[in-house]
Design a protein around this nucleic acid. Structure first.
Lengths: 210, 210
DNA sequence: ATAGACATACCATCCGGTCGGTCGCCGGGC
DNA sequence: GCCCGGCGACCGACCGGATGGTATGTCTAT
């Protein structure tokens, strides 16, 4: 019942027990994904969150800042999950498969975030774009390291750069936000299994070059 | 739009011999790709094209209409190229490889178009979005038909839906506009060769399930 | 003269952001 | 116990500027 702060407003906050910043974040995520960042006005945003402009600008320096907060949240989540799989025990092929499946699963579970991520990056200020790309790059490299590990062990083919393979895969994952619909023919897990299967098959050592 | 051959050049256009609609189209393509559709004002656009607002609104009904024209141009080009490869002679594996390489090549040769294509789709009006998706879907299905043909012939594995494989590949191709830089380490042809290689390797029949 | 191809001035609207103000809580002086 | 003053949370009317779009004029070739 209580807020995490221990603060409780009596009459002025009628509808939700959720904290104001969280309400703003989730409303923004939904609206930015549906209509795009630029098409969503601050007024529309705060109305959807059930707060006022003043409240928003009390917590966020700008509309841009709100977008950046969404990026930070999703980046942190992705990185945390990947670290879990990359640092696990077992053969690299299996670890990579698990991570590849999971990134699809996580993506379809948070389609709004992904939609925003790639569609609105250019709306951030230049330095924040750089910050996002930098963190994204770390994620990419963590993933790539697994591929390279497999290449050194000989379980993956080495005649294709690991970078290319990983980039290709992430491209496909990112593209999910364009076509995947929740409630469609395939569940996230099924798509993830297929994707990972194709990915690993592509990385399997070739017997004879054609 | 039937301004293909009857070009009129007046003495009032000082710098370019190119027709005004074309100038607008290429300026818009560049600016939309660089800054995004929303960040590019009509004034900025017409200034870059060396024309005035009046000229632009003489040829295009709206800013939206201009964006749509860009989509039509790129869709027509892609479809034409794909038809060339899909309808050619030879084994399906080779035709698919050629088409897969070419789509990468064409994409990196027209990075601006691709960048706009996926980033600004949601800026079009609803019915135009539908029109674009419909045409894009035809492209997808033409490509998929080749995969299915190979699956029937047994040269491609059939335990992964052709749809999934094609979607995955196009996702990777689309993603090129995010990371590929002209003048980088790899040429478009090289990336295309690697991508096609991974794609076809993923589709190769499996001998033993792991 | 007529029609198309532009040019120019102008408009209504909307948007992100601001700023002075309100409200309820809390610690402290007595 | 009780008032006081401050403080952070929040409110919402307001602003300057920019934007997409339009109305109307002008030039030129036919």
């Amino acid at each position: 019942m209580q807020n995490t702060d221990g603060r409780k407003r009596s009459a002025t906050a009628p509808d939700r027990g959720t904290a104001v910043p969280d309400r703003l974040l989730s409303a923004a995520t939904r609206l930015f994904a549906e209509q795009g960042f630029e098409r969503t006005s601050v007024q529309e945003l705060v109305s959807a969150a059930g707060v006022t402009k003043g409240a928003m600008y009390h917590y966020f320096a700008s509309k841009d800042d709100l977008l950046y907060a969404i990026y930070q949240r999703v980046l942190a989540m992705q990185m945390e999950r990947l670290n879990g799989f990359a640092g696990a025990e077992g053969p690299v092929r299996e670890r990579l498969r698990q991570a590849a499946i999971d990134v699809v699963h996580t993506t379809v579970d948070n389609l709004d975030d992904t939609r925003i991520f790639f569609r609105s990056l250019h709306m951030l200020s230049a330095d924040r774009q750089i910050a996002v790309r930098k963190e994204r790059r770390q994620y990419h490299e963590r993933f790539r390291a697994m591929v390279e590990e497999g290449q050194r062990q000989g379980v993956f083919r080495a005649d294709v750069p690991a970078d290319i393979a990983v980039t290709q895969y992430f491209g496909a994952v990112h593209h999910l936000s364009t076509w995947y619909r929740t409630g469609g023919a395939l569940t996230g897990g099924e798509v993830g299994a297929y994707f990972a299967d194709l990915f690993l098959a592509g990385l399997s050592p070739v017997e004879s070059a054609d």
